[in-house]
């Protein structure tokens, strides 16, 4: 589709006979904020795996900026193209400090030699400071990431995503395990980010999705069931049947 950042069409994937994704189509435009909801086993995580090249689809098309075929790319290549991913379980390097985690994620050369001989420059230090402020972790700058609270780890991971400066962020259940205040703060953060980056959020928490205030895609059994504003999809009888009604 013209001008799209991410374009999925007719994507299917089976695992040992189980149809995880079935004729899934999805379009995300640059700077867009999108929430993806759906019951367990709806194929949300598999969809992310396919977009990031972790899993190859059995059929269908996945295009980045209408030109790059993502079905041929692996995780590293999609990351370098500009797709950042946050896992459901916070995944930070626990034995490194918060600042080191951010430094590791900063946009820059990823080659062996460049890392071996490279030094941390002034601009990088400034960028790290900015990110620390953004995710409110200035205090914990030199603490090992392993010592952070669950919510702080989520934020650090979001900070790491931003450090990559990706064009698309895939965020898997960022509000899981957060207090209400933290959840609202996270929604706010994501809204801030959107615009400069496209953001796709997978979430269960309806309050959180409401707080995002964006277009919602409902997945069910590997297919798109409905798409539109939260009010629009909430009114859809099928959606109520499979998801909201339970």
């Amino acid at each position: 589709m013209s001008g799209s950042l991410l374009y999925l069409s007719g994507v299917g994937k089976s695992f040992d006979g189980f149809r995880a994704i079935d004729n899934l189509s999805l379009v995300v435009f640059p700077g867009e904020l999108r929430a993806v909801i759906g019951p367990n086993g709806a194929g949300k995580t598999t969809m992310m795996d396919i977009i990031t090249g972790k899993t190859r689809p059995d059929e269908g098309e996945v295009f980045w900026k209408e030109s790059v075929d993502l079905t041929r790319a692996d995780e590293v290549e999609t990351a370098r193209l500009g797709i950042g991913r946050k896992f459901q379980k916070p995944s930070v390097i626990e034995s490194l400090t918060v600042a080191e985690n951010l430094e590791l994620a900063l946009k820059g050369p990823r080659g062996v030699a460049a890392r071996l001989f490279g030094r941390r420059g002034e601009t990088e230090a400034r960028e790290i400071a900015r990110l620390l402020a953004l995710v409110r972790l200035e205090e914990a700058r030199d603490a090992p990431a392993g010592s952070l609270s669950h919510g702080q780890k989520q934020w650090l991971e979001i900070g790491m995503l931003l450090a990559q400066d990706p064009e698309l962020l895939l965020v898997d259940e960022p509000a899981a395990g957060m207090t209400d205040a933290e959840t609202m703060r996270t929604a706010e953060l994501l809204r801030e980010i959107a615009g400069r980056h496209a953001v796709v959020v997978v979430e269960h928490d309806m309050e959180f999705v409401r707080a995002l205030g964006c277009k919602v895609t409902v997945l069910h059994q590997g297919r798109v069931l409905a798409e539109g504003s939260l009010e629009h999809v909430s009114a859809n009888p099928e959606v109520i049947e499979v998801y909201l009604g339970r």
Partner: peptide, 27 residues
Amino acid sequence: SRLGRVLVAIRDAEERARFLGYRVEHY
């Protein structure tokens, strides 16, 4: 070195390192 941080990242969270764009196998 800065490479050492990548190594630790690979040791502790290989998947994360890969999604950050590091070619884990090269390291």
